[in-house]
C-alpha cells in the first residue's frame, strides 16, 4: 500500500540537542521495519517525525512517494499505537475505535461495519460497550490496535506497544501483531528497545545508536554479521563476548587463529562456544581455544549459561541442557573459526 522513505532526516531540539543526526531508511511496501536501540538513541523521535508529531529539522520523509514534511498527522494517513495505549478513558471501546473515522466524516453505517469487523478480527466484540478502565492490559492493547486497524491507514506506527504487558502476554501479542501485519499487508514501523521483539518481528531491522543508524538489514544477517561492537553487544541475548586484542595477540588463548592485522576486538557469541574437557578434533581447524574459570552458573532449563573469567575478560558460555560444572571449575572453551568476529579499533567490523 505504501512505502516510507527517510532521507537524511535530522532532529535538532530548540535547546540545540541533536536527537537524530541524519538517518536514511527506505522501507518497502508491506514491510515491518523495527527500529531498535537503547533509550535515548532517537528511535522514538524518528517515529514521531514519521507520525508528524515532531517537526523534521532537516531531510525529508516521504510516505507513498509523497514528501510529508509539512503536513500534519491527520493528513498523513497514518495510525499509531502508543506505549500506554492512550485510549480515551471516557469513551466506550466502540467509540474509541470509531472516533478517528467520525472525525474524517465517514458515513455512520460504514463506521459501524468497520468497527464491528475489526472487533471481530481482534476478538473484541464482547467488549465494545465497556470503558477502557474495565479492561485488562492485554485487552486495552487490543483496543489500541483496533483503533489503528479500523482506520485502514497507509502506515502503522508502533511505539513500544508491548512494554507494559507481562512477559507471557508479550510473547503472545508479538505473534499476533506479526500475523495481523502480514495479513493486512500494511507497511509498519515498530519501535522497541527489546532485541528479542526486534529480531522476531522485523522484516527490516534498523539498529540505532546515538541518533545514527548503526546497521540495517534482515534480522538474521545482522545477527550473523554485526557491523560494529555496538550491534554485536545489542543484538543477541546474552550479548556477544568481546575480548580485546593487543597487536593481533590475545594473551589468554592457547590457540588463536589467524587474526586480521587491524583487529582490536575479538567477538564470539555464547551460543557459538563449545566446552570440551578433552582436547582434540576442533582445535585443528584454526579455532579459538582459551581457558576460562567458571564464576557462576545460570541453569534456565533448556540451556545453561556459564559466567566465566578468561584471561582477556569476562565471557558467557552457553551449554545445552543442564550442566555438572560449578563455580571454580577450569575449562577450555572453543569457538570455530567461522564463528569469530573481528572489530577494528573504531568498533567497526573488519
Amino acid at each position: 500500500m505504501a512505502t516510507v522513505d527517510l532521507k537524511d532526516v535530522r532532529k535538532v531540539y530548540p535547546g540545540g540537542v541533536e536527537a537524530v543526526k541524519g538517518v536514511s531508511i527506505a522501507i518497502p511496501d508491506k514491510a515491518l521495519c523495527v527500529l531498535v536501540g537503547p533509550s535515548g538513541c532517537g528511535k522514538s523521535t524518528l517515529l514521531r517525525m514519521i507520525a508528524g508529531l515532531e517537526t523534521i529539522s532537516a531531510g525529508s520523509c516521504a510516505i507513498d512517494g509523497k514528501v510529508v514534511n509539512a503536513i500534519g498527522p491527520t493528513e498523513r494517513d497514518i495510525a499509531m499505537v502508543f506505549q500506554n495505549y492512550a485510549l480515551y478513558p471516557h469513551m466506550k471501546v466502540y467509540d474509541n475505535m470509531a472516533y478517528g473515522l467520525r472525525n474524517r466524516g465517514t458515513p455512520k453505517d460504514e463506521i459501524d461495519r468497520r468497527v464491528r469487523s475489526t472487533a471481530k478480527t481482534l476478538e473484541l466484540e464482547h467488549l465494545l460497550e465497556r470503558r477502557p478502565r474495565e479492561l485488562s492490559g492485554g485487552q486495552r492493547q487490543r483496543v489500541a490496535m483496533g483503533r489503528a486497524i479500523v482506520r485502514n491507514p497507509k502506515v502503522f506506527l508502533f511505539d513500544e506497544p508491548l512494554s507494559n504487558l507481562d512477559a507471557k502476554l508479550r510473547g503472545q501479542m508479538r505473534v499476533e501483531i506479526k500475523n495481523l501485519q502480514r495479513s493486512l499487508g500494511v507497511t509498519s514501523v515498530y519501535v522497541t528497545h527489546d532485541q528479542l521483539e526486534a529480531m522476531t518481528l522485523a522484516d527490516v531491522l534498523v539498529v540505532m545508536n546515538a541518533g545514527l543508524v548503526e546497521q540495517s538489514g534482515a534480522p538474521l544477517d545482522i545477527y550473523e554479521k554485526p557491523a560494529s561492537t555496538f550491534v554485536a553487544s545489542f543484538i543477541g541475548a546474552p550479548p556477544m563476548n568481546l575480548l580485546p586484542l593487543r597487536s593481533g595477540q590475545f594473551e589468554g588463548a592457547v590457540t588463536l587463529p589467524a587474526v586480521p592485522g587491524n583487529a582490536a576486538t575479538l567477538g564470539f557469541r555464547p551460543e557459538d562456544c563449545e566446552v570440551r574437557v578433552e582436547a582434540g578434533g576442533i582445535a585443528a581447524d584454526g579455532a579459538l581455544r582459551l581457558l576460562a574459570r567458571v564464576e557462576g552458573v545460570e541453569p534456565v532449563g533448556a540451556e545453561s549459561f556459564l559466567y566465566c573469567q578468561a584471561a582477556g575478560g569476562r565471557i558467557v558460555v552457553r551449554v545445552p541442557g543442564r550442566t555438572e560444572l560449578q563455580a571454580g571449575d577450569q575449562l577450555p572453551v572453543f569457538a570455530r573459526r567461522e564463528k569469530l568476529h573481528f572489530f577494528g579499533s573504531d568498533g567497526k567490523r573488519v
Binding site: A51, G72, P73, T74, M80, L87, G100, N103, R147
Partner: peptide, 8 residues
C-alpha cells in the same frame, strides 16, 4: 497525540 492522529 492520539487525538491528533485520529484527526481531532
Amino acid at each position: 497525540e492520539a487525538a491528533r492522529v485520529d484527526g481531532a
